[in-house]
Amino acid sequence: MRTANRLATLLLAVVLLVGGVLLAVAAGAAAAGRPALLVDVAGWAAPLGETRWDDWPVRAAAIGAVLLGLGLLVAELRRWRPQRLDVGDGWHLHRRRLERRLTVAAASVPGVRRARVRIRGHGAQWRPRVVVTGDPASRDEVEFAVRQELHRLAAPRPGPIEVWLPSGRRAA
């Protein structure tokens, strides 16, 4: 979402810049009584003089704007996954990098074909959740590998680490 916000802001900036320049040039030409240079204002405004408020394209555009606005509101106001995790004494671990590191640790266990680690929780209250495809007997070893990796990073987690082996994708 953070990257999407950044890209959307860049797009908005370009639209404002280009649109603003075009509007200024067109309006300046109109004020000076000269023909439009870049945009055919009269040709662009003519359909607006024929379109009624209750025409379906107007309603569709309005509904689209409301839905887009509501979607944006929900996306911006909901609680985002944290960018970093608290490990005490002013130290934090970058969440995504840690997920990748734990994924590598889990995938290095013999019998594991594929692993994926996601961190759940916020602030100091976080815990990894490991999804593994492979030999069901490797569950304890995966948990041990993840716990060991967290210990190496000075971020030990009390309590059990959730290791999930989807039954439909277990190795034979």
């Binding site: 908005l12 900036a13 404002l16 649109g19 603003g20 200024a24 067109a26 109109a30 004020a31």
Partner: peptide, 18 residues
Amino acid sequence: PLAAAAAGLLAATSGLWL
């Protein structure tokens, strides 16, 4: 039209700042 041109310049400046 001059007011519209000023609004366009304002939008372009905002875009450039952003």
